[in-house]
Write a protein that binds this DNA or RNA. Sequence first.
DNA 1: CCCAATTTGTTCGTATGTATA
DNA 2: TTATACATACGAACAAATTGG
Lengths: 255, 255
Amino acid sequence: MKVSTAIALQRLQPEAVGMPMYRAVKRELLRAIESGAVAPGDALPAEAMLAQQMGVSVGTLRRAVDDLVAEHIVVRRQGRGTFVAMHGSERFLFQFFHVERSDGLRQAPEVELLSFEKSRLDDEAATALGRRLGEPCLQIENRLRLQGRPVVHDRLWLPALLFRGLTEKRFRERPSTIYHLYQTEFGITVARAHERLRALSADRHAARVLGVAQGQAVLQVRRVALDLGAQPVEWRISTVATAQHDYVNLLSRPV
Amino acid sequence: MKVSTAIALQRLQPEAVGMPMYRAVKRELLRAIESGAVAPGDALPAEAMLAQQMGVSVGTLRRAVDDLVAEHIVVRRQGRGTFVAMHGSERFLFQFFHVERSDGLRQAPEVELLSFEKSRLDDEAATALGRRLGEPCLQIENRLRLQGRPVVHDRLWLPALLFRGLTEKRFRERPSTIYHLYQTEFGITVARAHERLRALSADRHAARVLGVAQGQAVLQVRRVALDLGAQPVEWRISTVATAQHDYVNLLSRPV
DNA sequence: CCCAATTTGTTCGTATGTATA
DNA sequence: TTATACATACGAACAAATTGG
């Protein structure tokens, strides 16, 4: 694991910016992370070093990092350093996967690839991704199992321009989560997402994949995933069989 | 609006507590708010005053208040003060109401009371509320309209012991949201909630209330609302007609 | 096992800026 | 205008966790 001792950073002048210093510092750090100057998993330079480089006090630097921590963009470890957050199963489960068994049992799903093909963005996907209709994309279909049972059917649309060189083989042989693959192989970090949920009747395809009766009520989750710069990078429609599982949402978890 | 100039607060000794001072300060402030020493809408004493009373620096005091702000328990207003957060339509919409029209239009619902009766907790409600089976409760049924259309059917279970003296008249004639009523009339502040969502087929009752076909897929939201001390105070089952509306969830909103 | 160096975590105090009444 | 309150920024000291010798 690389430890950055110094990275290219702007020295900030007080008042030169129309915002508080700690905001400018945050933007500068974000820029360095987005640009790849510090890769996921790497440690940032120490706080004292960063503060000196950018010409601000340690307190101001920490204020900026506090924000990045709150957004899960970096993680602090006392005695070790501050690291660019990496996507892995823990974070996936915590931040991006909301389905668990009705009795509260929470486990990582087993993912099974159903299909992988080059395609073009339809109207809905193009709109969601803020891209042009008909733009080339990769379309991927997964089935997720929990406790051995098929529970989620995922369909993903990825703009081909953002994922150049992604093949079925590379996708299938990823060592960790999908978002980990985006991050390590394509420099795309999913920072947050918007989801819209609705109930509908399972169509023939979804029913077959999930092993439920056609017409059965299922939960549909439509997600746009955004990168660090808030640019849409993935459009996903998940269908969830909620006979024995729930979609869980915690409103205002305690700190 | 009352402005507290001094409230009963413990003076904290460093090291006397097995946690950082700012955590102890936060707990002490929470205690004061829970006890009603500062009522919702009231201003806390100024930061300098609080810091002096509790024997900590302003920086430490602010660190504690930062946490309370993040949890929406208090709100700061520069130049005015720090206020105990009040439940109102804005907060309701922002934190506890997740249904909006599919095109993204977000409005406060019109609420219509369908029934109000004294009852007893069934197994499911008792479990959710952490109370004994058969304990007296109030059971309330509402219909919520968005853009004139019936969209949500709510059933609420309230432990009678926590809402003594709540009558249909008082409930019906509340001037604002339900959570505002809990807060102002019963000293119960809903601070957060857990929700579990699933899809199912509308039963006859829900279908009639929402004006959809029986057997139509609808979204069911089961919510436990917790007060400041994390005690369950309300159990609610909402049924949402998602033909033209969605349940919206923002994962990691930016700060 | 202990020590020393490094890094983040906590706490203090002070000064100045900005918004409000 | 003045006073008050929160917001930003600085600098310093020590505590706690980690790592490597």
